[in-house]
Amino acid sequence: MDTVTPQDTDRIAYRDAVEDDVPVLVPLVESAYRGDSSRAGWTTEADILQGKRTDEKEVRAVISTPGSRLMVMERDGEIVACCQLEHRGDVAYFGMFAVRPELQGAGLGRRIIEEAERRVREIWGVSEMHMTVISVREELVAWYERRGYRRTGRMTPYPHGDERFGIPQRDGLQFELLVKPLV
């Protein structure tokens, strides 16, 4: 597995996504979560959800909506990760987080989430980051907990029957709110 070395620091850049990035971002997000390609990484949802994770319309909306941005991480000029950041008053929402499956476990996810937290503090002056995670994704929740996020126990039902969110392969799926103070 690739690891990020000190030399990689010069090769990595962050920026906000633009319309021209959409054809790269949709397959990136899809590959990190759904289908056989997602199985190359550890963030796959392929066993609990089928269907699409996102589409061009949704990605364009994140890019173009005021108070929302899609931050990308580039390595050697190539997009390798992304995350959605949304300003919600005193907090920011973190979502649509994806790292190319073959690069997962190399430290890029940790780096982009740290940059996202730094940016929302600096740009929006928020005091807390929020995200929702499918509660049965214990390994993923544990990864976020190691980065300072805490489980709240606040659940919202998975939108069964709405194929925009994927087709559940089991009953009882729900989202749990995770929060992290940004001090």
Rank of each mutant, 00 (worst) to 15 (best):
L140E: 07
G35K: 01
I48E: 03
P27E: 04
E30F: 12
D8M: 02
G105T: 02
E78D: 12
A98C: 04
S135E: 13
E122I: 03
R119D: 01
T152L: 06
P159H: 07
V133P: 07
V80N: 04
R69K: 13
D76A: 10
P159G: 03
L70Q: 02
G109V: 10
D16K: 06
V26E: 08
E74W: 02
T132C: 02
Y93R: 05
E19C: 00
K180M: 13
R121Q: 15
P6R: 06
Y144F: 14
G95L: 07
G95I: 05
E74N: 00
P101R: 03
F97V: 06
S64L: 09
Q50I: 07
Q50Y: 02
Y149F: 11
H130E: 14
G51H: 03
R121I: 09
I79W: 05
E117A: 15
R118Y: 01
A92F: 09
E78P: 09
E58I: 13
G51Q: 04
E145L: 03
D47S: 15
P181C: 08
R75K: 11
V4R: 14
Y158I: 10
A13Y: 05
D171P: 06
R75P: 00
V99G: 06
M1I: 08
A106S: 15
G105A: 11
L108R: 04
Q7I: 13
V22G: 12
R34K: 09
Y33A: 03
H87Y: 08
H160R: 15
R88Y: 05
R75M: 11
D36T: 12
D16G: 12
M131D: 02
I79G: 01
E78H: 05
R75Y: 01
R118D: 11
D2F: 15
T9K: 13
V22A: 08
G105D: 05
L182H: 00
P181M: 02
V72R: 00
V99F: 03
M129V: 01
Y144H: 04
L178E: 06
A40Q: 11
Q174S: 14
T65H: 00
E19M: 02
R60G: 10
